[in-house]
């Protein structure tokens, strides 16, 4: 393979990344070409390590370097609550808030008629197994799927499957985002926020 072949191969590989077209891939490739060898090797090693050393937790499907993730292993967490999220990056955002101390379950997708039940279906089976497991009784399943039609459909689907086990199923609140002005909220968001209103204590 000549120099042009090597460079072209790099561009083609970079174009596999989401949102990266030919122009952006070329820009990245030229940047890599100009960067020190050490830095380029670090990028390559990080990619290889991610593929070889990172797995999905066998319990919650979170990213981990061991069989089970640090959240599932932690005795400081509330093992009677499971918070269901669509993707691992949602889990990271919730962890960043520091408010939630229970366990998670990552679906890696949604179970919606719009997506032909693809993606999250296998993970939902894992969630049901966790709820059915009598050695570690679950008291509450919190559904933190996105407040769009895919997320709502997924929440309805999971609720339908879990309710027969007598477990409390809750949905995260939906309404006006903090720091915004109510006058700019659309009617659906306003209705949702009114439905989910709570009593104010002095």
């Amino acid at each position: 393979m000549d120099h042009k072949g090597v460079f072209e191969a790099l561009i083609e590989q970079l174009m596999q990344l989401p949102g990266v077209g030919r122009k952006t891939a070329e820009r990245f490739a030229f940047f890599i070409l100009k960067m020190p060898s050490e830095s380029a090797k670090k990028i390559a090693t990080a990619i290889i390590d991610t593929k070889e050393k990172l797995f999905f937790c066998r319990v919650c499907n979170n990213m981990t370097e061991e069989e089970t993730c640090r959240i599932c292993q932690s005795s400081a967490r509330d093992h009677q609550k499971i918070l269901v999220v669509e993707e691992a990056n949602t889990l990271a955002a919730i962890e960043k808030s520091g408010e939630y101390k229970g366990l998670y379950h990552v679906l890696h997708g949604t179970c919606s008629p719009l997506t032909d039940h693809e993606g999250g279906n296998a993970a939902v089976k894992g969630l049901i197994e966790r709820v059915r497991n009598e050695s570690n009784p679950i008291l509450e399943v919190i559904l933190a799927t996105s407040p769009n039609i895919d997320g709502e459909a997924t929440a309805l689907y999971i609720t339908r499957l879990i309710k027969p086990f007598g477990v409390k199923v809750t949905r995260i609140a939906c309404g006006v985002p903090a720091g915004s002005d109510i006058e700019y909220a659309d009617e659906v968001t306003l209705v949702k926020s009114l439905e989910g209103r709570r009593e104010v204590y002095s």
């Binding site: 008629p113 039609i149 709502e152 459909a153 309805l156 689907y157 339908r160 009617e187």
Partner: peptide, 21 residues
């Protein structure tokens, strides 16, 4: 701008499925 949201359709799995179809 929303004219009608058909929000009630999204509160039930069966109506989501039929509406989607």
């Amino acid at each position: 701008d929303i004219l009608h949201s058909f929000q009630k359709l999204r509160d039930d799995w069966d109506t989501i499925e039929l509406g989607t179809q």
